[in-house]
Amino acid sequence: MTGQDRTAPTAAAIEELARAALARIPAPFADHLGDVVLIVEEWADDETLDALEIEDPYDLTGIYAGRPIGEKSSMESGALPDRIHLYRRAILDEWVANGEDLVTLVHHIVIHEVGHHFGLSDEAMHALEDFAG
């Protein structure tokens, strides 16, 4: 599905692609993703954009909200679950602008956000993406 198709997928379709990307993540990483909540929204809210100092909501396709696994303690309680937010309109804009396959684009975004869950470097995220590709 390329951006040239110009048919805007629904939030449910983006979520389905994201879940498929999560399903391709290999063990042992996949073993630590069961409690991560996946949320697809139209846009990032103003609070999120302000916190990241992003002015244009089209510049944020996804974000990980939570604490990386290496920073967690078994003594913690009452925290919100870790979340991966995907922003449909920004994803669609990038999809159309770049002409990249939507499956590939969503996979890339999901792997990047999963990488933040694990506290991975950008280099390690690329290696995980190649392995889960």
Rank of each mutant, 00 (worst) to 15 (best):
Ile14Val: 12
Ala65Met: 15
Ala90Glu: 08
Leu17Asp: 03
Asn98Lys: 15
Phe118Leu: 00
Trp95Cys: 13
Pro68Val: 04
Ala51Met: 11
Gly70Trp: 03
Ser73Gln: 08
Gly119Ala: 02
Asp31Ser: 14
Ala21Tyr: 04
Gly115Met: 01
Ala127Leu: 14
Gly119Glu: 12
Phe29Ala: 07
Gly115Glu: 00
Leu60Trp: 10
Val110His: 01
Leu102Pro: 10
Ser77Ala: 15
Asp93Ala: 15
Ala8Ser: 11
Pro57Phe: 01
Ala21Arg: 01
Tyr64Gln: 06
His32Ile: 00
Glu123Arg: 15
Gly115Phe: 10
Asp122His: 12
Leu49Phe: 02
His108Ile: 04
Asp46Gly: 00
Ala8His: 10
Val114Met: 06
Leu22Met: 14
Glu53Ala: 06
Glu41Pro: 04
Gly3Met: 08
Arg83Ala: 10
Ala127Gly: 09
Ala13Asp: 08
Ser73Pro: 04
Ala12Cys: 02
Ile109Leu: 12
Thr10Gly: 02
Ser77Val: 05
Asp5Ile: 07
Glu53Phe: 04
Glu41Ala: 12
Gly99His: 12
Lys72Trp: 02
Arg89Trp: 08
Gly133His: 12
Gly34Tyr: 02
Arg24Gln: 13
Ile109Met: 09
Arg24Cys: 08
Asp101Arg: 08
Asn98Val: 15
Pro28Trp: 11
Gly66Met: 11
Thr61Gly: 10
His85Asn: 14
Ile39Asn: 10
His108Leu: 13
Ser74Leu: 15
Thr104Ile: 06
Leu128Ser: 08
Ile54Gly: 05
Asp35Trp: 01
Thr48Trp: 03
Ala44Val: 01
Thr7Ala: 03
Phe131Ala: 09
Arg67Met: 14
Arg19Thr: 06
Arg83Leu: 05
Ala51Ser: 15
Leu60Ile: 09
Glu113Ile: 02
Asp50Glu: 13
Asp101Ile: 09
Asp101Met: 04
Ala21Trp: 03
Leu60Asp: 03
Tyr87Asn: 05
Phe29Asp: 01
Leu120Gly: 08
Asp93Gln: 12
Val114Asp: 01
Glu53Leu: 09
Thr10Arg: 07
Leu80Ala: 15
Gly62His: 06
Leu60Gln: 05
Ile111Arg: 04
Leu60Pro: 04
Glu53Pro: 00
Trp95Asn: 13
Leu17Tyr: 11
Met75Asp: 13
Gly70Phe: 08
Leu38Asp: 01
Gly115Val: 01
Thr61Asn: 13
His107Cys: 03
Glu94Asn: 09
Met1Thr: 07
Ile109Trp: 08
Asn98Ile: 08
Ala23Val: 00
Gly3Lys: 05
Gly119Arg: 06
Phe118Pro: 00
Tyr87His: 14
Glu16Cys: 09
Ala18His: 05
Ala79Trp: 11
Val96Gln: 15
Met75Lys: 10
Arg83Lys: 14
Gly78Trp: 10
Val106Ala: 07
Thr48Arg: 14
Gly70Thr: 01
Gly70Pro: 00
Gly115Lys: 02
Thr61Gln: 13
Asp56Thr: 08
Ala51Val: 00
